[in-house]
């Protein structure tokens, strides 16, 4: 256990946000879901008792008698904003006085940094470079993430859970978002920052960053394992594998979409286009962990090799 190495990584000023993220993201996940579960309990109560539902105020923190429903912004909201500004300024001041922004040697194209890392918020994408070619990890994926986020409101046809925390009424949406945001985005950032060392090799926390470390692992393409050697067949085989994955993943996602009576009802509200976009995004999102596992477990480099691109 190399505590010194661990400390060097964690205490790097630029890594502070990630160390902070390790606490902040779980905290807010808990904080949000806690309110969701509180609302879900209320929902269960109201669903069991339709008569109560008709007269109930429908909030976990209801108005008290004599309370105004609305408050003047001045001073009630302004003072919250003022408080937030004071607290943020204080944190920022302490942070800036105690920790210095990093400054390395002057830029030198002939002296490569090892590891050379992107800023922390792009480390998820840089981590993806291990598993995918740059055109996928660096161009297609960011584009799809942006498009995927933008279309969320236009493909989520579930009218429940508008303006309040709930888990029960939006299980599918919440699981999808949490897999994307927390499992794929945040944890890849943490891996890229805290785990990846020289040569972008995997170093467990506490392992010494050995710059001379070599890992002999032979990554092979899927067609090599199967034993196909000449081109048109390699391409066709890869295409079939990818097509097979798309079919299987699409089928799996469809099973999830029609899993319960409620989700079927939501599906009934969706147009064909909405359904198609949802499927495409889900399948591509699912492809990431599948490819990651294929690499980590079976040392597979590409599954589809063509003269123009490799997947």
């Amino acid at each position: 256990m190399d505590w010194h190495q661990l400390w060097t990584i964690i205490s790097l000023p630029d890594n502070i946000p990630i160390v902070g993220m390790l606490f902040i993201i779980p905290f807010f996940t808990w904080f949000g879901l806690r309110q969701a579960f509180a609302n879900d309990r209320l929902l269960a109560k109201l669903e069991a008792d339709p008569k109560l539902a008709r007269t109930h105020h429908r909030k976990t923190q209801p108005f008290q008698k004599g309370w105004a429903r609305e408050l003047p912004v001045w001073p009630y909201l302004m003072r919250m904003e003022f408080l937030a500004v004071v607290i943020v300024t204080f944190i920022l001041m302490v942070w800036s006085i105690t920790l210095d922004a990093p400054l390395e040697e002057p830029a030198n194209p002939s002296l490569t940094m090892n590891p050379s890392k992107a800023p922390w918020y792009f480390l998820g994408l840089q981590e993806m470079l291990v598993y995918f070619d740059p055109w996928i990890a660096g161009v297609v994926m960011p584009t799809l993430i942006i498009i995927g986020l933008i279309v969320i409101p236009y493909i989520d046809e579930n009218p429940l859970g508008n303006g309040y925390y709930t888990y029960k009424q939006r299980k599918f949406a919440i699981w999808t978002f949490i897999s994307g945001f927390i499992i794929l985005w945040c944890s890849m950032i943490v891996i890229g920052t805290l785990i990846r060392g020289p040569g972008w090799m995997w170093f467990w926390p506490g392992m010494t960053w050995d710059h001379n470390r070599l890992i002999f692992e032979i990554n092979r393409d899927l067609h090599e394992i199967i034993g196909i050697t000449s081109q048109p067949w390699i391409g066709i085989f890869g295409g079939l594998v990818v097509g097979g994955f798309v079919t299987a993943a699409g089928y799996g996602c469809h099973r999830l979409i029609i899993a319960t009576e409620f989700t079927r009802k939501i599906l009934g509200r969706m147009s064909l286009l909405q359904y198609a976009i949802l499927q495409v995004l889900l399948i591509i999102m699912l492809a990431l962990p599948v490819k990651i596992l294929a690499r980590l477990l079976f040392r597979i480099k590409y599954v589809w090799v063509t003269p123009w691109f490799n997947v």
């Binding site: 002057p106 055109w135 990890a137 660096g138 691109f309």
Partner: peptide, 26 residues
């Protein structure tokens, strides 16, 4: 500095691989 230079080098190298618009892309 070195930090920014290499981060931006890594970042923009990906642009090389843009499909159709980068010289190393599909």
């Amino acid at each position: 500095d070195q930090l920014g230079f290499w981060a931006v080098t890594v970042g923009t190298n990906m642009a090389r691989a843009t499909p159709m618009l980068g010289h190393e892309g599909p």
